[in-house]
């Protein structure tokens, strides 16, 4: 059975803070950091935004582009590491806000930065087994980096939603597989505000090992090589890592560029690969092939071999804002406003 993406939608909050501005506070070399990370600025959620509101905005953008009846969505999965509640699902808020209740399976997922792609795989299984007609998978985050921590320069907010189904598929998922090990490179304990990480340990044994292993498995399973693809999207905790892993695997900067959004909005964690994939679907043509590998600390990678179909020409892509439109719609703020927006200032009574 053919199965894949029926529609997609992304959302990025409006406010930004530059790497240079954050570096100014901590007396670091802003230009050097910005260049080294290949990140200019990162998005900040508004006072009234969280993973639930970002998920709803992205999902509504996906729905407005297609003719799917929300009542036909039989599963709703929200992948995030910043669900608004510790106990109470984000998925129920999303399902209610798009009209997919009450006959739907709903659950929140968490797998660091790859919970969104894990949701896509789960929806594929349910669609292919015939249990549901459509599934909605969302990857969204309002990630937190501790002040002065290297992650503070990139931890941002955003997300994207994918309707997975077997009819009117705009991008067929030919193959998906995962590479998973127990690798504690990044974590956040219950009740803790900020995550912790293993510093350089997050590189070679974590990000690079999982992505390259997953990518090689996917090449073998799909019988493909880098030159078979027009686009390649890798998890983008910063702009340097995906460029390096892409080069190692044999992809060119031209294949990576359309889906590399992190330099302008930072690392949207569970939203990172989904937003990159949305940016590629904004411009992709029928017959083009997309290579996708996400990465979630802890650790694992989900790989997808995708072919864009003729159906994409029938999708009302212009009915919702493109990723580029959201990237361009921005307002920069200084560190003081950023600290206020992210609740980093301790108020009276707290």
């Amino acid at each position: 059975m053919e199965c894949g993406i029926v529609s997609y939608g992304a959302y990025i909050p409006r406010h930004r803070i530059s790497v240079k501005e954050i570096a100014r506070i901590w007396n670091e070399d802003g230009d050097g950091l910005s260049k080294g990370l290949n990140v200019i600025e990162k998005s900040i959620p508004g006072f009234d935004e969280d993973t639930a509101t970002i998920s709803v905005a992205a999902a509504r953008n996906a729905l407005v582009r297609c003719s799917v009846n929300p009542k036909d969505i039989g599963a709703v999965y929200v992948g995030s590491e910043s669900h608004p509640y510790a106990v109470k699902p984000t998925g129920t808020i999303l399902a209610e806000a798009i009209g997919a209740t009450p006959n739907s399976m709903v659950a929140d997922l968490e797998f660091a930065c790859k919970a969104g792609t894990a949701g896509m795989q789960m929806c594929m299984g349910l669609v292919k087994s015939g249990m549901i007609k459509y599934g909605l998978a969302v990857g969204a985050d309002t990630s937190q980096g501790a002040p002065m921590d290297p992650l503070e320069y990139t931890a941002s907010a955003g997300g994207a939603a994918f309707i997975i189904g077997a009819e009117n598929v705009i991008a067929k998922i030919n193959k998906t597989l995962s590479f998973t090990t127990d690798t504690p490179d990044f974590w956040r304990r219950e009740g803790q505000t900020y995550p912790r990480h293993g510093g350089r340990f997050t590189g070679e044994p974590a990000y690079f090992r999982h992505i390259t292993s997953c990518a090689k498995m996917l090449f073998e399973a799909a019988g493909t090589k880098p030159t078979d693809y027009q686009y390649a999207i890798f998890h983008q905790p910063n702009g340097a890592f995906p460029s390096k892993v892409g080069k190692t695997l044999g992809f060119t900067p031209e294949q990576l560029k359309p889906g590399l959004i992190v330099p302008y909005i930072g690392n949207t964690y569970s939203g990172a690969v989904p937003v990159g994939l949305s940016a590629v679907l904004d411009v992709a043509n029928p017959g083009e092939r997309i290579f996708v590998v996400s990465y979630g600390s802890g650790a694992g990678s989900d790989g997808f071999d995708i072919t864009v179909t003729d159906e994409i020409l029938k999708l009302r892509r212009d009915a919702a804002p493109s990723v580029k439109q959201y990237v361009d719609r921005k307002k920069n703020v200084d560190y003081a406003i950023y600290a206020k927006m992210r609740g980093k200032i301790r108020m009276a009574g707290e």
Binding site: D48, E49, A52, T53, A57, R60, P84, Y85, A97
Partner: peptide, 17 residues
């Protein structure tokens, strides 16, 4: 129209969207 947080009861209370 956009979907946003309107209010929360308290830091431990329900969030109203």
């Amino acid at each position: 129209a956009v979907f946003r947080r309107i209010q929360e009861e308290s830091k431990s209370g329900v969030i109203y969207y």
